[in-house]
């Protein structure tokens, strides 16, 4: 496949933390028919950037996230981190799923320490204690996940992903399972956590409000087979006020553009 010289478009490769170059992904459905979820996606996420992926259902935003994680591979194009093609899951990344995916046979602390113990990182006790305090789980270290509410379980998941100090944090609709109140609280608290750690984050969401409250850049996916329709830069200081005019303006624009794509999907 002939590819034009992408370097001219992207600038020096060293500034990009995560890069997608003409990524495509097709899935085979049961009867052999192919579905092109991702058509042609190219994007570049910088170090320390908080990137949100938003788009209609089935546009491949979670799939792209899983490709960055290393769980899936693109059928076309490539995904790179720090300039190297992503070959498999590695602990330089952390992941938070919508369904928490905690290990029920481990306590809160056991879950949080899982990655750290696997990698034999030394002298982490202080870091872990601080992290537990930061996500608001002090006092619950010995509790088992099933005794905790959804919001608390997700805090454990976030702490677990950050405990081993990965370079990149991947989040797949992390607040999707939570009720509205808990969600608002979690967003607020997560901003605090993020501001302290300043990690590069890729955050997949359905919610325009969530994306605009959290992200530096919002990448809007088009309908299937998806491309990046638009990239919105959100230059507002955090924590952001949803009633503020500049917030409302960008929200209106993003929502309108998103609805266009949703219309195409729903027909």
């Amino acid at each position: 496949m002939n590819m034009p010289n992408k370097n001219a478009k992207w600038g020096p490769a060293t500034t990009a933390k995560v890069e997608a170059r003409s990524v495509a992904k097709t899935f085979k459905r049961d009867r052999g028919e192919e579905v092109a979820a991702i058509g042609d996606i190219s994007l570049s996420i910088g170090e320390g950037e908080f990137a949100a992926f938003i788009g209609p259902s089935g546009c491949g935003k979670s799939t792209l996230l899983y490709m960055v994680a290393g769980f899936e591979k693109p059928t076309g194009g490539e995904v790179r981190m720090n300039g190297h093609v992503i070959d498999r899951p590695r602990p330089d990344r952390g992941i938070v799923f919508q369904e928490y995916v905690l290990f029920p046979w481990l306590t809160v602390e056991g879950n949080i320490r899982f990655g750290v113990d696997l990698q034999n990182q030394p002298d982490v006790d202080a870091r872990i204690e601080h992290l537990i305090k930061l996500v608001g789980l002090r006092g619950f270290e010995q509790a088992y996940p099933h005794t905790l509410s959804g919001g608390m379980q997700q805090r454990v998941a976030i702490a677990r992903a950050l405990a081993y100090d990965p370079e990149l944090l991947l989040m797949d609709e992390p607040f999707g399972s939570l009720d509205a109140q808990t969600k608002r609280r979690m967003i607020k608290d997560f901003i605090t956590v993020w501001e302290e750690t300043k990690k590069t984050v890729i955050f997949v969401t359905h919610s325009v409000e969530e994306a605009l409250l959290l992200a530096d850049k919002v990448y809007l996916f088009s309908a299937r087979p998806s491309r990046i329709k638009q990239v919105f830069s959100v230059d507002l200081p955090r924590p952001r006020d949803i009633s503020e005019p500049s917030f409302i303006d960008i929200q209106r624009e993003l929502l309108a553009s998103l609805d266009e794509e949703v219309e195409k999907m729903m027909g």
């Binding site: 899951p89 990344r93 990655g115 696997l118």
Partner: peptide, 8 residues
Amino acid sequence: WAAELMGA
């Protein structure tokens, strides 16, 4: 997946 990502 989660375990693999964490280095298992």
